[in-house]
Amino acid sequence: MKRTGRKKEWSILVFCAFLVGVFPPILFLFDKPVLIGGFPLSFLYLFGFWAVMIAFIAIGARRRLVPELATDDVTNTTAVADVSERGRSDE
């Protein structure tokens, strides 16, 4: 499996966000015995937050459609485009 640094940064971000979200003091904000739309607030928050985090994991685990080499090519062509743009503005 090709290992890229981006995925790691993303997973660290999601991990930290997750940990902060389910630990106090954030948890404390939502941990109240009140009903919102017929659902307990903490029930809604915990399951909702959990689901969002799972979605984030899924985003992080997607296979990269553009392989590494192809992205290099793209930057090269933009570099070329830059040069030609500069050339044009010189006229």
């Binding site: 290992r3 995925k7 997973s11 985090m53 992080g60 685990a61």
Partner: peptide, 8 residues
Amino acid sequence: TLVFVLWS
């Protein structure tokens, strides 16, 4: 779930 975030 938290551990699976760090799967890679």
